[in-house]
């Protein structure tokens, strides 16, 4: 299954949140990968990456889910997800197994093949985007796991500059956590609220029409806060813009405000 007519074969790791909340993110990711010459498959045995269990300290459960994910993506040349956070979790898999455990090697192997979508397009495929237009100013939130565990910072920006009409207006503290933190936002709601409040303040200050990011957890958090505060900023996953798939309304909106060209 490694190559298909000389195309790289990619297993799409859809991630729970994209599956549940924003199917467009999955289709946009597939389109970006196919445009870049990949053959994309969606293994049916995948579920969650196991991060909720890992970060709650339930390593036994995390390891069981890790084994399932490793099996599901066995044989794919690459595993790509529209999330830095979930891919970071895949990169943690080797920590779940002892040195002598045969799964350790398989976890290492998966880690070497697992990439976040913007990093995969830029760092692995060195791909240039197909022409598309998005007439909007955007500001970009650097999600923590992608930024600090996978080194994703320039990749999405580099790709965004290839989209016609995009103007990037950087916000202050774009690298500061939005306060989502998985279960943190419901375990420590007051602190999380302060953190996302600081974030929306910086987003609004940046004066952009659209907020983009690479992780739906953070985006749902910031979109929900912006809407509760009554700010008129659209929130989208970056792949929607990169794939030119911005016809559908932004997160939590009923109508699309910025039309793709």
């Amino acid at each position: 299954m490694n190559t298909y007519k000389n195309q790289p074969v990619v297993g799409l790791f859809i991630t729970c949140l994209a599956d549940l909340y924003r199917p467009e993110v999955g289709f946009a990711t597939i389109q970006l990968l196919e445009d870049a010459g990949c053959k994309v498959e969606v293994p049916s045995q995948q579920t969650c990456c196991g991060q909720p269990a890992f970060n709650t300290g339930d390593f036994k459960q995390s390891a069981a889910i890790a084994r399932q994910t490793i099996e599901a993506f066995d044989g794919y040349q690459y595993v790509v997800a529209p999330s830095g956070s979930c891919i970071s979790m895949l990169h943690h898999y080797p920590e779940l197994f002892d040195e002598k455990d045969p799964w350790k090697k398989r976890a290492e192997d998966l880690k070497a093949r697992a990439f976040e979508i913007t990093s995969f397009l830029v760092d692995v495929l060195q791909h240039s985007l197909s022409p598309s237009t998005f007439n909007s100013s955007i500001t970009y939130h650097d999600s923590c796991s992608g930024l600090r565990e996978l080194g994703i910072k320039d990749q999405p920006r580099q790709l965004l500059t290839q989209v016609e009409g995009v103007e990037i207006k950087e916000m202050q503290e774009s690298e500061t956590c939005c306060g989502f933190g998985g279960t943190f936002c419901v375990k420590y709601p007051d602190i999380s609220n302060r953190m996302v409040g600081n974030k929306t303040h910086n987003i609004v200050d940046a004066g952009a029409t659209t907020l983009l990011g690479g992780d739906l957890g953070c985006l749902l958090n910031m979109a929900g806060k912006l809407q509760r505060e009554g700010h008129d900023v659209d929130v989208r996953h970056v792949v929607e813009v990169l794939a030119g798939m911005t016809d559908q309304p932004a997160l939590g909106e009923t109508k699309s405000t910025v039309k793709a060209g």
Binding site: P23, V42, C185, G224, V235
Partner: peptide, 23 residues
């Protein structure tokens, strides 16, 4: 069931069926 979330912010709703259904 998610008061910790909605006390302070809205919860964006899914934009359609699940990806896996559509796929």
């Amino acid at each position: 069931l998610a008061r910790g979330w909605t006390e302070h912010r809205d919860m964006p709703a899914p934009s359609g069926k699940t990806f896996m259904q559509l796929w």
